[in-house]
Design a protein around this nucleic acid. Structure first.
Lengths: 202, 202, 202, 202
DNA sequence: GAATAACCGAGACGGTACGTCAAGTCTTGGT
DNA sequence: ACCAAGACTTGACGTACCGTCTCGGTTATTC
């Protein structure tokens, strides 16, 4: 008896979806996003630019919003935690790297879209937090943890909270502060403040 | 002779704009915003709800966006700096008060709209920063300044930066953290961290 | 008391619909109909040709079909019953005139559309019959009636039926017979046949 | 040696087209036509109902229209010319039989489709006339011919024309007259009128 | 107190994009 | 070469709003 016989066939039938079409759509979306912004992006534009029919978009994504979210997901930056030098240096390098990557039209759009999506829907917010934000927090907290002894950090400090502080500070700098006030100096001072706050007072 | 008579009249001619109409429009806008959100708000909805013609809206605001911005401006919260107790208490009360006021559909919408507006247009961002954010920063910084001696704060600390930290942290809590993780405890710890960071180490 | 006060105002409010727009739409519809036919006519084409927004069409007509029906109504020919000469001549002139007017792309389209509309919906058929076809039948029957004595027509003849025969014959010639077989001769013979059928046999 | 071997094979290679598939498609088409009408019939519906892929339809028919025409051809009624009784009875039986067969959704659809197809394309009309309508006309004319002496019909009468009259009258009754006015009485009177018209006046 | 001018609600206007549907073609794996 | 399934491009559908324009009608100020 053929081993295949006793399983319900779940082999995909019909012409499979083209991954090239998929790619073209996401690429076109990002290009248009960076050219004209979220508000003025239209599905018809995307379809035209991608050389694709509208139905091929709606077959894959439920709505314009879903497509945009998916497209922006792609450019989510990896935190770069190389751990060279002391904690101060490590945190500074990491933060500067992140800020540089996100300080582009697309990066800002991603963040601000993320914010408007999440702040309006607590269900999405909850799961997004767990899948995307929490790991980031833990990653940063993990980095700090390795320096706990070396830097004589206080025992009672909640490292997740510290990580949140850093992330919040970076997002604030990125989105709300005018670009001109957004230099390395304030970043350095900010990190020092946090470091000092974490250290044992004596 | 009436003193008004000898000045060239600069009273506008024709029927003056009704301030009642103005109010009704803004009120309807806020109601709709809190009911269906920014995306689904339409001028026709606002006009209908306010019992007003579309032209009366476009006579006063250039576009839908302008109206929304104006409406949200109205619910911008005042920071409540009563200065009761020590610095820890003062900052905590202030922050909790702010968080409570903003932790509503409208409040979040205001913040997230502000963010998407600002992050896409650095010119608006610059002036908005000066008119709205900078004074806030200075206000908080001023509060901390009063406690500099009493709390033995470090001389070299940039209080504006500390204020930015606090604001960034609050916005982050409000918009990106899921409501469930958003308690007084983490706020308290966060403030302690900052306070500790500001104190002279010895 | 003003006599107007005790009636509910039914004065039209808001900007009145432009009769020019109305005309342009109907005209464009007819032009397109005669150029590409019913099947290939699209509302978007009509809007474009009429220099009008789609909404101005849908504001006036519920669907594409309703528009087409309305447009074709316009070219419905008047029967030309001048009553010059004897019955044979009168009927022949009338029929030839009708055939000539309808033997155009638009005319045929109107008839064939009328047929497909009516044959699929007996409710529309009923009222259409009363409003449009029955009067036509009566008109022709009336013409024949005037000659009843002069032409020694049988008393028991149902003139409506005779009219139906004539109309049916004309439509058949128009729509189903190839144009080449569609000459004055067969029309003349057909009318003679009917006339003979109506006369007293002795 | 097989006799087939010495002729060049003109049998098509590969799997032959399934005649079952062919039947299923035509049947499904007719069912759908009678259920929802021509306008709302879609190839996807037909394929689904026939349990068939779209390509199997397009492999056999060039377009949706071709399929529909083909399907409707199938229900084209045979004239039933049994020649029982005198001419009046024969014509009446034949006409009533035809009207009964065609007075169904499918029958009317067939006629009205035929009309809209033919009235828009004089080339198709010409050949359709020769292949389908002319034989019908001749058939009816032939029937009448047999009674020429017996019924004392005029010598100069064009029997084809008489047949056209009858066909035109029947189609008119079927498609344009509301069903309620469509009884045996008017049919009888109509036939009498024609018969009378054909007889020698003395 | 009549004229003038900007206001007002209502709703039509030309547009743009939405998300859906179907047409006819193409591409799978399988018969 | 056929088949069923279903993805592909194209293009129209009818709807919803945008921001503008045009009605009849309503207040104010100015002549």
């Amino acid at each position: 008896m053929n081993p295949k016989d006793d399983m319900i066939s779940n082999a995909p039938r019909g012409r499979p979806r083209s991954s090239e079409v998929h790619r073209n759509i996401l690429d076109a979306t990002l290009v248009i996003l960076s050219e004209v912004g979220v508000e003025k992006l239209s599905i018809e534009m995307v379809a035209g630019r991608a050389g694709v029919g509208k139905s091929s978009i709606y077959r894959r994504w439920k709505s314009k919003e879903a497509l945009i979210v998916d497209a922006l997901e792609q450019i989510k930056p990896e935190m770069n935690t190389t751990l060279q030098g002391d904690l101060r240096e490590v945190l500074f390098d990491m933060a500067r790297d992140f800020l540089q990557k996100m300080n582009t039209p697309l990066g800002k759009q991603m963040l601000s879209l993320m914010i408007s999506t999440l702040s309006g829907n607590s269900q999405i917010a909850e799961s997004f937090w767990e899948v995307h934000s929490l790991p980031k927090t833990k990653e940063i907290a993990g980095v700090i943890e390795r320096y706990r002894h070396q830097e004589r950090l206080r025992d009672d400090i909640d490292l997740d909270l510290v990580a949140d502080y850093l992330i919040g500070f970076m997002i604030y700098q990125l989105l709300l502060k005018p670009p001109s006030l957004n230099g390395d100096d304030s970043l350095k001072q900010g990190i020092d403040l946090i470091l000092n706050g974490m250290r044992r007072s004596e």
